[in-house]
Amino acid sequence: MSAVMNTPHASDAMRRRTRYFMLGAFLVAAIAFAVIAASGINQNLVYYWTPTDLHAAGDKAYGATIRLGGMVSPGSIRNHGGASGVEFDVHDAGGKVHVKSSGVPPQMFRENIGVVVEGTMVQGGYFKSNRLMVSHDNEYKAPEAGHPMSQEELKKLMKTTEGME
């Protein structure tokens, strides 16, 4: 009827052969998947180190260019040296690392937001970075009453006003 209908079929011999090709392809795919999944689950490949990882690594953490990821500790943000850089602490459940980062931080940078910084752990016990990235979580919320405010901030605000009356 149409041109599409006239497209040829392969012979039976070819079809038998192609099924082996398919089995082979699935085998290769399954092995690749298993290897990559295992490397992810065993943490053989890491995109960033957490403060806990850095502390656990001890002296080995010094000198190499790595990424450090965690939350910006509240009250720790300071401008440093009058330049555009910032200093702050990055923490996770198991530790805290002081970071000195050069360059203007992204606009979303604030307390209690995830960050990934690239740089090195230097003698003096801080992390020197020249690439600061803000990591947003998967929550997308409309601002409440025209003001940007997270649920925690709202709760905090409600707690502080609770005892006022």
Partner: peptide, 8 residues
């Protein structure tokens, strides 16, 4: 440092 992206 408001933490909010302005404009864009």
């Amino acid at each position: 440092m408001s933490g909010v992206v302005q404009g864009g």
